[in-house]
Nucleic acid binder design. Structure first.
Lengths: 212, 212
DNA sequence: CATGAATAGGGAAAAATTCCCGATGGTTTT
DNA sequence: AAAACCATCGGGAATTTTTCCCTATTCATG
């Protein structure tokens, strides 16, 4: 009984590497590849895989957006996101979206295989490093205010914290500047920061951005 | 031939410690202490010390401000600033103001004595850690854009980067919001950043603020 | 003493932010 | 299934911030 997997990443080199890695395990079969979220969504219906393994950051519709689309049409879909972000918030957003696995690229290669296997059996998989951070945060009783943000708010927040102007964000997200401005105000309220400066520092504290 | 020193720090405990440290060296004599920049300025005229050893961060007139006042009236004054900031920019500002020595608190205790002795003999003293950073920056050819800022601009920049609002800065510096706003625009130009976000990241990169 | 740099701020226009509100489309609850 | 909710999206208008341009004062320096 093999597990059918769809591989989604915009870099073909990465896809090859992943394919090799996963196929080294006999019960895994790469049924299809896709280089965009849009394509992944299309072929999902044709292939009906057991698991989708998808990069979080891709041009156009990102991994999370694509995951949400798929889950909307196929609520039972099992999706594993892999990501370069070790930040807790990204994992939180992904799981909130209904994704079943979150693996960081800095983790072990075996983790990826394990994640796909676990998820194919209905389990949930979370990378060791992220799990540890969350566990520690929880134990200390520290709350992550970023988790109050909705998916869209988080997206806007991240872009603004990266230094994008309201105008740019509006364009990237294809929504009006007005909407972004309104989100901005709302986000600042939710995070109880009063200036862009505090916002950046918060983002930095939670590992969303670096000082370079 | 002893060296007369004025000790300036707002914490009396720190003053005691410094006094003990410096007096362990027989050629140093603490002629007076002051807990504010204002007071330091006043007693400078009465005591006419060989060296002023002054903390950079004090309520009211900070160490740099006080140093500038003293140097204005007594251009031959020899002042050593000690500071918790290892950031290059602080040292740069201090030396630009005419201070003869800059010692970080993280350095060795002996450095402080050495600094006072060196400066008393007309030499200039710069803490090892800061000197090293500057040297490395210079060798790499990296320029520190913060050095383009004037003293006042730097002050405004630092406060804004810390998260203070324009209004707060105006109040703290006892100048109008209008002036701060104008400085703000000017600073962004000089540093060629276009948003508060970039400003914070620059400040963090240069160690003026931490991510907490 | 002229010159230039640093500091301080006014006035007016432009841009960003806030606040309030309405609309739509999913989900969840009852 | 209807009702209630929430996320998303944006318009309008008031307010605040930011920008740009100019002027004045002080001080150090050639």
């Amino acid at each position: 009984m093999t597990v059918k997997v769809i591989l989604v990443d915009d870099h073909s080199v990465v896809r090859s590497g992943l394919r090799r890695l996963l196929e080294s395990h006999k019960s895994l079969e790469i049924a299809a590849e896709a280089d965009t979220g849009e394509l992944a969504y299309q072929i999902y219906g044709e292939v009906l895989p057991d698991v989708v393994l998808m990069d979080i950051s891709m041009p156009g519709m990102g991994g999370l957006e694509a995951a949400k689309r798929i889950l909307q049409r196929y609520p039972q879909a099992r999706i594993v996101i892999f990501s370069m972000h070790e930040a807790v918030s990204f994992a939180a957003q992904a799981l909130k979206a209904g994704v079943k696995g979150y693996v960081t690229k800095t983790g072990l290669a075996e983790d990826l295989v394990q994640a796909v296997l676990d998820v194919s059996r209905g389990k949930t998989f979370l990378s060791q490093d992220v799990a540890q951070k969350i566990a520690l945060q929880t134990l200390i009783g520290e709350t992550n205010p970023l988790q109050q943000l909705t998916s869209r708010e988080f997206e806007v927040f991240r872009l603004l914290a990266e230094g994008k102007r309201v105008e740019d964000v509006a364009e990237m997200l294809k929504i009006s500047q007005k909407t972004v401005a309104n989100y901005y105000t709302l986000i600042k309220q939710k995070l109880s920061v009063s200036s862009p400066v505090e916002m950046v520092r918060l983002a930095m504290k939670h590992g969303l951005i670096d000082a370079e």
